[in-house]
Nucleic acid binder design. Structure first.
Lengths: 150, 150
DNA sequence: TATTGTTATACTCTATAACTATA
DNA sequence: TATAGTTATAGAGTATAACAATA
C-alpha cells in the first residue's frame, strides 16, 4: 500500500515506453485493419503462424488474452475460416487450434506487410543500433516480467 | 502495396517492443483497476493531472482516443464526479475539461501508485541506464511518428 | 479435486457516419 | 464552409463467475 515515490528517471522511462508504444499502435493498427483483422485477431494469427498449432491454454498464455475472451476471438476467426479448433485426442478437455490454409495464407501476407510497414520507420538505423535497441527492450521486459505482485 | 521484406533486425525490434509493452500492460492494468479506473480513464486522468484543463480536442490528441469514443469515456468520468466539462466562453463549440477536486485527489493517489508499482521493476537499474533507455525509446518514437502513410 | 474451455453477464472501448451548434 | 463535440450504430474486447467435461 505504501509505495515508494518513483524516481524522475523511472517516470521518464515509463512515459517514453507508453509513448513509443502509442506511436507503434498508430502505425500498426491501420495496417492490421486493412487485412480485415482486429488487433487481437492479428495477435492470434501471428502467434499461430509458423507453428504446428497449439492449445487454447498456450495461445492464451502467449497472447495474454484471457480464456473467456479468447473463446470469442477464436469464434470470429473460425467464422472467417482462418483457423480450425479441434479436440485434442490425448487430452479431451483441450482444444487444438491450427491455422487453415486460408489462415496461413493471410499470415504470410499480413505479417510481413504489417512488419514491413513499421520497419520503414527504422530504415535509417544501422544494424547495430537496431540490435542495441532490441537488447534494451529485452532487458526492460525481463525486468518487468520478473517484478511480481507483492 | 509492394512492401520491402523487413530485415530480421527490424522484426526483432518490433517483437521486443510489443513484448515489452505487454509486460508493461500486465503490470499496470491490475494496478489501474484497483483504483476503479479503466486504462482509457486512467489515460485521461493522467493527461489532465497537473494541468489547468484542456479542450476535448486537445485531450483527444494527447490520449489518441477518437472524439466519439472520448465522449463516452468522459461521460463515465463525469458520473464518477472526477471531471467537469464546461462550455468554453471564448469558443462556444468547445468544451473545457478539468479534474474536480476529487479527480485531482485520485490523480495524486493513483498516478504515483501505478508509476511506483512499475518503477520497482527498474530498481536495479542505474540512473544512467534509465536515461539511456529513455533516450532510445524517445528515438524510436520519433522514428515512428515521422514515418507517415505512403 | 484440478484443469480446459464454454457460456452468461455486464461493461467499456472502438470506428464510423450523421448530426447539432457554433465559428 | 469548417470545426467541436454529440449521438447512433454495430461490433469487439474485457473481467468475472458459474458451468460442463475430462483428467
Amino acid at each position: 500500500m505504501t509505495q515508494a515515490i518513483p524516481l524522475p528517471r523511472t517516470r521518464e522511462l515509463i512515459r517514453e515506453l507508453v509513448r513509443a508504444y502509442q506511436a507503434f499502435e498508430q502505425l500498426s493498427n491501420n495496417r492490421i485493419r486493412q487485412h480485415g483483422l482486429t488487433h487481437a485477431q492479428f495477435d492470434v494469427i501471428a502467434t499461430l503462424g509458423n507453428t504446428a498449432g497449439m492449445s487454447c491454454k498456450t495461445l492464451s498464455e502467449k497472447t495474454l488474452i484471457t480464456k473467456g475472451t479468447l473463446t470469442g476471438v477464436l469464434d470470429r476467426l473460425l467464422e472467417k475460416q482462418l483457423i480450425t479448433r479441434t479436440v485434442d485426442a490425448n487430452d479431451r478437455r483441450s482444444l487444438f487450434v491450427v491455422l487453415t490454409e486460408q489462415g496461413d495464407a493471410l499470415f504470410r501476407q499480413a505479417f510481413p506487410d504489417v512488419a514491413g510497414h513499421i520497419s520503414r520507420a527504422f530504415d535509417h538505423m544501422s544494424d547495430s543500433e537496431l540490435a542495441t535497441a532490441s537488447a534494451l527492450l529485452h532487458q526492460l521486459r525481463q525486468a518487468m516480467e520478473h517484478s511480481q505482485e507483492p
